[in-house]
Design a protein around this nucleic acid. Structure first.
Lengths: 224, 224
DNA sequence: CATCTCCGACCTGTCTGATAGCTACATTTA
DNA sequence: TAAATGTAGCTATCAGACAGGTCGGAGATG
């Protein structure tokens, strides 16, 4: 049933090229004319393939410079989701985040290395320092980094890929300018408790600390 | 910093056209030459814009027919995930699926309407009939439809959007041609038990039935 | 010698005209 | 009536051309 277009084949071909050579962010790919000769296709066909890879976030084509491997793909998960009730939407997102991150917490408690725990501790320290300096941007960055570190420590690549993809859409929305202090002050102690529990490899305690953290977050959303 | 290319403007323009007129799946868009005249751009530029929208899953361009609004966006979550160990990858996917779908099961048990339960029952009946006819394609379709129905009955739009987006990548992979019978035969009874428990609004029973189902699936993967 | 300017090689962005192939539908034909 | 054919409209692809961005080196300038 699936129609096969040359331009899609081109996209696959170039994607394979990247995968096979294990190229990473910033690496440069052969030029358009090189690919035209190599794949024996016309210019427009090739560019359509490139455009598709670009839309998928695999590559970046820069005028005058060349074709480069992109650092990460960004998707638009909710771009076509018609959100009528913002508060309800936030609560639904929290539900999804809850189950994904709880899994990450459990896996991280089991599998995280000491270096990864140290990494998390550093993010928490940044968190505290930024809060003290009333630098909310950095507070949020540190908070994000802490949670991302948990996902990474889960050693589940699918989970990491998934959360990286939807992170911006899943986490950003509740950054209301109002009452930031409350949100952060309420959740910070739970962060500390969570990290300590994970470090002790105490799944029960880690899980319950995480639930307490999410309960606090949910509470602030429900108050909105 | 963000460079503005005409082809991206085109994509935005056509996207707006769809949003403004609230077009939905299957609706037909003006032809390429119409757009060329309307936006005053060349054909290749326009087609690059279309290719981007196509990659984002917004539209579908079919040779000889025209340009149509697509029913769902599909993004490629694992396109850049270098999978070295297929078996481990499958197990990781199962972990992610487990937590997402368990949440869906619980929510569906609480919130599903009778019509939605009837829908699930119909899919199960299709499942059984297809299995009897040894029509594995339809077996898989019915199975997919059953699980998707659970997500939809959860009434959590974020969950639905998420699972719709990654469904093809999260579920397709273990369709190994070999031993299909075993997989399906082992899991079918659990499907029935699961539906009955949800229908009774018995969260405990539904949850444990779902776990049994996933345990069976995990078992077959681990045997691979 | 150090610095600046300019030019040319190489790259991508866009346009245009032409051709082939696909699809749906009306028309003709057996 | 049903199959074959013609046709209009559409997308897929190609080839060539030109404009504009980027970068580094040759040469001018001090």
């Amino acid at each position: 049933m699936k129609r096969l277009y040359l331009s899609d084949t081109v996209a696959g071909e170039i994607g394979s090229y990247i995968a096979e050579r294990k190229l990473s962010a910033g690496d440069r790919l052969p030029s358009v004319s090189t690919w035209m000769a190599r794949l024996q296709v016309g210019r427009s066909t090739l560019r359509e393939g490139l455009k598709r890879l670009e839309a998928e976030g695999v590559i970046e084509v820069i005028n005058g410079k060349g074709i480069f491997v992109s650092d990460q793909q960004t998707f638009r998960l909710f771009s076509r989701l018609h959100v009528t009730d913002a508060r309800r939407h936030l609560l639904e997102m929290l539900d999804v985040r809850l189950v994904l991150e709880e899994k990450a917490v459990v896996l991280a408690t089991q599998h995280a290395s000491e270096a990864q725990f140290a990494d998390m501790a550093q993010h928490l320290e940044d968190y505290r320092a930024a809060r003290e300096a009333d630098d909310f941007l950095r507070v949020h960055e540190a908070d994000s980094a802490f949670h991302l570190a948990i996902y990474q420590a889960s050693h589940n690549e699918v989970l990491v890929a998934l959360i990286r993809s939807i992170h911006s859409e899943l986490y950003v929305s509740w950054q209301t300018p109002q009452d930031r202090n409350e949100v952060f002050d309420a959740s910070f102690p739970h962060h500390v408790t969570l990290l300590e529990a994970m470090r002790r490899r105490d799944i029960e305690a880690a899980s319950s600390a995480f639930h307490a953290l999410m309960a606090a977050t949910r509470h602030t959303v429900e108050m909105m």
